[in-house]
Amino acid sequence: MLKILFSPSEGKNTGGNEPSKDLLGSNDARATVLQTYNDIIMSKDEEAIKNLFGIKKYSSCEPYLQDVFSSPLMSAIERYSGVAYDYLAYETLSASEQEYLKSNTIIFSNLYGPILGGDPIANYKVKQGNSIGSIVPEKFYKDRFSYQLDLYLGDDEILDLRAGYYDKFYKVNKPYTTLKFLKDGKSISHWAKAYRGKVLRELALHNVSSIEEFTSLKINGLSFLETKVTKNKTEIIYTID
């Protein structure tokens, strides 16, 4: 089967009514991060909270000041908003297409670490690159989850659609495929998020189960340019029409 590695988003949707369940990987290790995060947001220490969230005004922090252990839960693939998720347009997909994303997408959260798209999470705020107390999330999760991810991915093929920052959470140790988008011969950055979301949508629409199936897809707005192979990474390069 094909597994897709994906980035989270600073933006979140509120609410949720998903029941709690064990998440991907070690929940004991994850509990350490969640407890540290919860201690900060429940401390009423305005400066510590603003620093964690990366927000200047304390009044803007209030939507996130809920006990993370008793907050409403929503599947990760639904929780995140932002450019990539706007182009994914999850809510417009069929039930089977949504289930594909919940089962086959691994999102690298700044709070929860690697989680499946269907894993239920609270509404939270951690600015990318910020520590949670003394915990550096990308280092913590790389140290404690990499072996578990290696085992979980097993013989699955991997399409890595993460933004470069999230490579810090997990280094793929077997052959995998990634994408690059060019406009007028130059690599794009911000709008790459849109095309990653668009590609993820196409994967769900066509129930893609292998890299071979993916490479045969015709994706509106993208034209195949070339493939580059470096060590265990295959990079497929597209031009934006």
Rank of each mutant, 00 (worst) to 15 (best):
S9A: 12
R162S: 08
T32W: 09
K139S: 11
T36C: 04
D28Y: 14
L34T: 12
A76P: 05
G82V: 02
L182D: 06
T234F: 05
K12M: 10
A89I: 10
T215H: 11
S109A: 14
H190G: 07
K56D: 14
S103I: 10
A204D: 08
Y141T: 01
Y87I: 00
G54W: 00
K183D: 07
T105G: 02
K218M: 07
A76F: 10
G221M: 05
A163G: 06
G54L: 00
A95E: 15
F145S: 09
L179H: 08
Q66H: 10
S103N: 14
E213V: 03
I240N: 11
L111Q: 10
L182T: 06
A194S: 06
G118C: 14
D156M: 04
G25N: 11
R201G: 04
Q98P: 03
M42N: 06
E99C: 14
G25R: 09
G118I: 01
G54M: 00
E62A: 11
F53S: 06
F145E: 07
S209G: 13
T227Y: 14
Y176T: 00
D167M: 07
G129W: 08
I121T: 07
L5D: 08
M42Q: 09
A194T: 00
L23Q: 13
S134E: 13
S96V: 10
F181W: 03
K139M: 08
N27I: 09
K233C: 15
Y100G: 09
K3Q: 08
Y176P: 00
G15H: 14
K183G: 11
G118W: 02
A194H: 04
